[in-house]
Simulated assay, not measured.
Amino acid sequence: MIDIAGWAPEPQETTEVIDAAPSVALAGLLDAAPPGDELPPLWQWLHFLERPAQRELGPDGHPREGRFLPPIPERRRMFAGGRFRVREPLRVADAVTRRTELVSTAVKQGRSGEMLFVTVRHTFSRDGTEVAVEEQDLVYRSGGEASRPAEVSFEAPEVKAPWTLPVTADPVMLFRFSALTYNAHRIHYDEAYATEVEGHGGLVVHGPLLAILCLEPPRRAGLKVNEVSFRARRPVYARQPFVAAGSPDGTLSIEAPGVTAMTATFA
């Protein structure tokens, strides 16, 4: 039974000068032109990174302990979704302060047992003025026997939408995104671990990468996005063809073989 009684982490603040290099690197990964001095929404995930010592990592590659990591045994983490609102864009050479705080927790019963839903808020400020707010929804469960790996289809989905961006995330892309975000979770690079320990159908495409790809069609169409909300619904695996689809009406999605893997809205 998940028990987090007494877990109430204090807010934490970190200040960083925004460097251009991570955005240039991500643009290369996406085969796109660099965005210039303004960070596109969600590209702040390349900044304010935690860099724990090797000895601090657990068997899954995640840190064993952390201020906003719940104290539950054999913790497994899933990226569920989030929201981001921009008042003014984060810019290269800005000194930005990020304040992180726990917003809510809820224990729910799922198909695989009890799950802990956690929402964490990041507030970004420049010269003492709030410029953007992000909320991340994360799901944790205690480890146990892996479920049987899912059957994975590699048939390209047929998608009809005003915007379509076909993508196939191979292991090289996953490795590069893990490096850019300093993400050591083994489900993204260790196929035996992903399938045999966590029960996935292959290497897992990062939820944040899917969310960034959701916003690529409006970004490439030249639209300014001030708000985005997204929800992860199904995993996407390496080598599966998928489509980042959307419309100027504000709807976006990741369409994978046979499933909608992520839905999003923007304004």
Rank of each mutant, 00 (worst) to 15 (best):
155 E>T: 15
179 A>S: 04
153 S>E: 05
188 H>W: 03
195 T>G: 08
144 G>E: 02
129 T>H: 15
123 T>M: 02
151 E>L: 04
186 R>G: 07
116 L>K: 11
163 W>E: 10
182 Y>Q: 01
134 E>P: 03
179 A>Y: 01
140 Y>K: 13
129 T>I: 12
118 V>M: 09
146 A>S: 09
188 H>E: 00
183 N>T: 07
148 R>N: 05
182 Y>S: 03
117 F>R: 15
158 E>K: 11
121 R>F: 06
165 L>A: 11
123 T>W: 00
176 R>C: 02
107 V>P: 00
143 G>K: 15
120 V>M: 07
133 V>T: 14
125 S>I: 03
132 A>I: 09
128 G>F: 05
122 H>P: 12
121 R>M: 09
109 Q>C: 11
197 V>R: 05
168 T>E: 06
148 R>Q: 10
179 A>P: 01
189 Y>T: 07
170 D>R: 01
151 E>C: 00
186 R>L: 07
170 D>I: 00
107 V>M: 08
135 E>V: 05
173 M>N: 00
171 P>M: 09
136 Q>E: 04
188 H>Y: 00
127 D>N: 12
116 L>M: 13
130 E>F: 08
190 D>V: 09
140 Y>C: 10
130 E>T: 12
125 S>A: 15
195 T>P: 07
112 S>I: 07
176 R>H: 02
164 T>V: 15
185 H>K: 08
188 H>D: 00
197 V>I: 09
156 A>V: 02
160 K>R: 15
141 R>V: 04
148 R>W: 01
180 L>E: 06
140 Y>I: 14
175 F>V: 00
143 G>E: 13
181 T>M: 06
107 V>C: 08
110 G>K: 03
174 L>S: 01
114 E>V: 09
175 F>Y: 09
189 Y>I: 06
105 T>H: 15
158 E>A: 12
122 H>Q: 13
113 G>N: 09
147 S>Q: 09
195 T>C: 14
135 E>N: 10
170 D>T: 02
129 T>S: 11
146 A>T: 04
120 V>N: 05
144 G>P: 06
175 F>Q: 02
131 V>Y: 14
182 Y>D: 02
156 A>M: 06
163 W>V: 10
137 D>K: 14
165 L>W: 10
176 R>V: 01
174 L>C: 02
188 H>M: 01
129 T>M: 08
153 S>T: 09
159 V>L: 10
146 A>Y: 02
123 T>P: 03
121 R>K: 12
167 V>I: 14
132 A>T: 09
198 E>W: 00
150 A>W: 04
116 L>H: 10
119 T>Y: 08
159 V>W: 10
150 A>Y: 03
186 R>Q: 10
156 A>L: 04
122 H>C: 14
129 T>D: 11
146 A>I: 03
137 D>H: 12
177 F>W: 12
135 E>L: 06
152 V>Y: 02
